[in-house]
Computed example of a mutant assay.
Amino acid sequence: MALHITLATYTFPHQVLVDRSKLEAFGIACTVKDGLTIQVHNFYSNALGGIKLQVHPKDYERAREVLSDHPDISAEYPDAKLKCPRCASGNVDGVGLNGKIALIILMVTGLPIPVFSKKYHCFECHEEFKLPNG
């Protein structure tokens, strides 16, 4: 059995999956220690020192390089018809339902009538805004 060294530790099982998949995509064999135990008993995470992502010592430096590479995943939206007035990003979406008004209507009439909001949310600067003509 080959000896493995800990590359990183994680608190929750879902956190280790991304890095493990990334290492395996680059051809680096890795193991997860205490993952199943913590998956069954989440509260054991601190007691066991977290979930350990381990690699063979010869792959340690390369694995650190792979995990330290964080590509820029920001996207441009040149064809977006709606732009944020604050940062001019096209990465915006409607807020959806106006929960306060819908709740008041539900309390008064007893009918769950959805009331849609006219606000938009920018995912770049987190500004909420309304259209100037709306």
Rank of each mutant, 00 (worst) to 15 (best):
1 M>Y: 09
3 L>P: 00
6 T>L: 05
7 L>I: 11
8 A>C: 11
9 T>I: 14
10 Y>Q: 09
15 Q>E: 15
15 Q>L: 09
16 V>F: 02
17 L>D: 08
21 S>D: 13
21 S>Y: 06
22 K>G: 01
22 K>I: 03
24 E>Y: 00
25 A>E: 04
26 F>R: 09
27 G>C: 02
31 T>Q: 02
32 V>H: 03
32 V>N: 10
35 G>T: 05
36 L>M: 08
39 Q>L: 05
40 V>L: 10
41 H>V: 01
41 H>R: 00
44 Y>R: 08
44 Y>C: 07
44 Y>M: 12
47 A>T: 13
47 A>S: 10
48 L>R: 03
48 L>E: 00
51 I>A: 08
53 L>M: 02
55 V>F: 00
55 V>A: 01
57 P>K: 13
58 K>C: 09
60 Y>S: 06
61 E>H: 10
64 R>I: 04
65 E>H: 12
65 E>N: 14
69 D>Q: 14
72 D>V: 02
72 D>A: 00
76 E>L: 04
77 Y>Q: 03
78 P>V: 07
79 D>Y: 02
79 D>M: 01
80 A>W: 00
82 L>Q: 01
83 K>G: 06
83 K>L: 13
85 P>E: 12
89 S>E: 13
89 S>G: 11
90 G>C: 12
92 V>K: 07
92 V>N: 01
93 D>C: 07
94 G>R: 14
95 V>T: 06
99 G>D: 09
100 K>L: 06
100 K>F: 10
101 I>Q: 05
101 I>A: 03
101 I>N: 02
102 A>G: 07
102 A>Q: 14
103 L>F: 15
103 L>I: 06
104 I>C: 04
104 I>L: 11
105 I>A: 04
107 M>E: 13
107 M>N: 11
109 T>Y: 07
110 G>P: 11
110 G>L: 12
112 P>M: 15
112 P>H: 04
112 P>I: 11
112 P>A: 12
113 I>T: 13
113 I>M: 06
116 F>V: 13
116 F>P: 08
119 K>D: 05
120 Y>N: 08
122 C>W: 05
122 C>T: 09
122 C>N: 09
124 E>N: 10
125 C>D: 13
126 H>D: 09
126 H>N: 14
126 H>A: 14
128 E>A: 11
130 K>E: 15
